[in-house]
């Protein structure tokens, strides 16, 4: 990927780094993906004969805690980027580590919620509501897992030579952009499923 980095300057270009363009394009496609899921949710819900009230069947306090975890992790990943920009390796480890921990906490809580639902005998096949609930939160959970893997990769990479070069800083920034997106998806999912 760094193949043409050395000769990038003479090219006609937008002035935006390749990686940044790519991550924004990727996020655009992700908007379409989750946009489709939300559209399906609206279509299915408006046509449904009955739809349970979210806060009566789902655990709102746990989800609120999870919302807090995700918003906090969005702050810590920005701090991690700031520390990396300031060449503060220990600070980068601290905040990126915190981001990963918060994401894992989110997944653990989500796992408890899932387990509780299964225990109560609610499965994706139970009703269209649970189908939507498990599918959307499940896909969101996969995105969280992907983000955790990427962030752990960055922490591993920070231990190598050249951790403070432009390419590395770029990747931390792209991880942040992605993470904010995953966060925003949850900000929409939370009210749509739990509160409405």
């Amino acid at each position: 990927m760094s193949a043409h980095a050395a000769v990038a300057a003479p090219y006609e270009n937008t002035g935006v780094p390749d990686g940044k363009l790519a991550i924004w394009l990727f996020l655009a496609s992700e908007v379409m993906l989750f946009g489709t899921l939300f559209t399906s949710y609206i279509v299915l819900r408006t046509a449904a004969a009955s739809w349970p009230v979210g806060w009566e069947v789902l655990n709102v306090p746990l989800a609120t805690l999870n919302t807090f975890f995700l918003i906090a992790s969005s702050v810590t990943i920005v701090m991690a980027h700031a520390k990396a920009s300031a060449r503060d390796k220990a600070g980068f480890y601290r905040f990126m580590g915190l981001t990963v921990l918060l994401s894992l906490a989110f997944l653990v809580v989500k796992g408890f919620e899932y387990g509780h639902k299964f225990h109560e005998g609610h499965f994706p096949s139970t009703s269209i509501f649970y189908a939507v609930y498990f599918t959307t939160t499940g896909l969101h959970g996969l995105h969280i897992i992907g983000g955790v893997a990427w962030n752990l990769g960055l922490m591993w990479w920070a231990g190598r030579d050249g951790w403070d070069d432009r390419l590395f800083l770029g990747r931390v920034e792209y991880a942040g952009l992605y993470w904010h997106f995953v966060d925003i998806v949850w900000i929409f999912l939370f009210p749509a499923l739990y509160l409405l």
Partner: peptide
């Protein structure tokens, strides 16, 4: 393509987990 990906996931759920999208 992403909307088809989402739609395919829903159809996969219908087939594998017997959801009713």
């Amino acid at each position: 393509f992403p909307p088809l990906e989402a739609a395919a996931v829903l159809q996969l759920m219908d087939r594998v987990f017997h959801t009713s999208f």
